[in-house]
Simulated assay, not measured.
Amino acid sequence: MATAVADTQLPAPPKEVVAVQEKLEASGPLKVPLASPTSDSHPPARATLTTDQQEKYDWLLAQVQGWTEIPSTKGKAGPLTDSEKFWLTKDCLLRYLRATKWHKESAEKRLLDTLTWRREYGVEELTADHISPENETGKQILLGFDKEGRPCHYLNPGRQNTNPSPRQVQHLVFMVERVIDLMPAQQESLSLMINFQSTANRSNTTPGMGLAREVLHILQNHYPERLGKALIIHTPWFVRAFFKLITPFIDPHTREKLKFNEDMNQYVPSEQLWTEFNGKLEFEYDHASYWPALQALCHEKREARLKLWTAGGQQIGELEDYLAGHVPVGVAGVKPAEEKALPSEPLAVPAPPAKDTPEVAKPVEAKLEDLKLEEAKPEVKPEVVSKPAQETVTTA
């Protein structure tokens, strides 16, 4: 059995961050995402690997390091790219091992399947400009962190503004990728917050079975071990019936994480819990303020991780806590101050296609200091950002 190490506490955000956030809250409803968990949020205890688990991890790492080509039947085959090597962290490999109950060959197969899917689906090519119309009403919001430091991902089906289409699924994939960008050190999962309350325009907010099954397939197969909790409110009879229908497709380990109509303040600090979930955080979705602020925040966090990955030698199997700035050295034992023999330029974030980025690409690449607090009172300033086939599987 793995033994748990002592529970740790997330570092307190800088005083400047607290001051700016307090200023934003005092000026009216928040309109941008929060950058950090509360100072008293505790990540779950890490588990040490048993000798057997360490041997299986070492085997999987050696296999991944020896890959010469990612397979594809859609013309996307080829060697590992730098961004894929960056994605293949030690923690990523361990997530796939846990998801396959430490069956090392199954973990390798699923990793390859996911890399093939990421290429063929175009995960890295999804742009904020392409996804923006789906989120104009705020039907997905990344806002705050729970008591274990998990980013909160709100789903608001009652704000649905588009008809079923492939872009609706792309929207969810895009937002899950942004949640991962926002994850602090020592945390690798999210809290899914679902509000099924209907609106005057939408009385039935239940997604169709086809769409639901596609989403479940993607989340279970390509984002394993990412769900920490799912907190669900306002569940009318047809929503409960819907969950009964999809229950056979949900892994038992995942079902244990579903919480219906509970007091969500017991899971999320009240000051970071949206008032729609009976918290104290006054938040108003304004797409013009929120969307560019979210992209800039995520871009800055990705760039910081990419810079550290380059400084550490661009290792497959790098530590996510190193990339988040929580530990000073990575798997190669190289400190950023010892970079002389390493590439001086960080890996660039893949640029979106030119035809898809005439307007929104600029805010995505913008620094947070370009967002003016005076013009949109809750806009984020730079201080708000923390610098730095059937297998037995579990999904979160």
Rank of each mutant, 00 (worst) to 15 (best):
Q390Y: 08
P336L: 05
K23G: 14
F242S: 01
Y267D: 03
G317H: 03
V349P: 12
P363V: 11
T275K: 09
L60R: 00
P224A: 06
K15Y: 05
L93S: 04
Y121T: 01
A376H: 09
L368D: 08
T89W: 04
P363I: 04
V334E: 01
W117Y: 09
A107F: 09
T395S: 08
F243Y: 06
S270W: 10
V179C: 10
V169C: 05
R202S: 09
K15F: 14
L319F: 09
F283E: 12
A230P: 07
T51C: 13
S198T: 03
P224Y: 01
E148K: 10
E25K: 15
V176G: 02
L143W: 11
N156A: 00
P346H: 06
V329S: 10
Q314I: 02
L30P: 07
R255A: 11
N221E: 07
P29D: 13
P353H: 12
P43Q: 07
T394A: 10
L216G: 03
K23C: 14
S27G: 14
G279P: 02
P11A: 09
P252R: 03
R118K: 13
E345S: 13
A47M: 07
T3Y: 14
H253F: 15
E379G: 15
P184D: 08
P346T: 07
E214H: 12
F249Q: 02
Y285G: 09
V393G: 12
A311C: 06
P14E: 12
R150P: 04
Y285I: 12
A200Q: 09
Q65D: 15
N135P: 11
S72F: 01
E225Y: 05
V334A: 03
Q266M: 14
P352H: 00
I218N: 07
V327F: 08
T392A: 13
R202C: 10
E120K: 00
A35M: 07
T254K: 00
G149C: 04
A35P: 01
L80R: 00
H326W: 05
P353N: 08
V18S: 08
A200G: 14
A293R: 12
Q266I: 11
S270F: 03
H42D: 00
L49G: 08
H153Y: 15
H171T: 04
F260T: 01
Y285P: 15
L143C: 08
L371T: 03
H217T: 12
T81G: 01
T394G: 08
L190Y: 14
R110M: 15
V64R: 02
L347I: 08
S165A: 13
S270T: 10
E339N: 14
W309V: 04
A341T: 10
L371C: 07
P328M: 07
T206H: 02
V329H: 01
I233F: 06
V32D: 09
V215Q: 07
V334I: 15
T38W: 00
M1C: 00
T81C: 00
N195D: 15
A389L: 12
D52S: 06
L319D: 10
I218Q: 10
A4M: 07
A2L: 06
L190V: 15
L172Y: 08
L49P: 13
T162W: 06
S83W: 03
T205F: 05
F242W: 00
D40N: 13
E374C: 02
P328R: 12
Q65N: 15
W67F: 04
T254R: 05
E148G: 06
L34R: 13
Y290H: 01
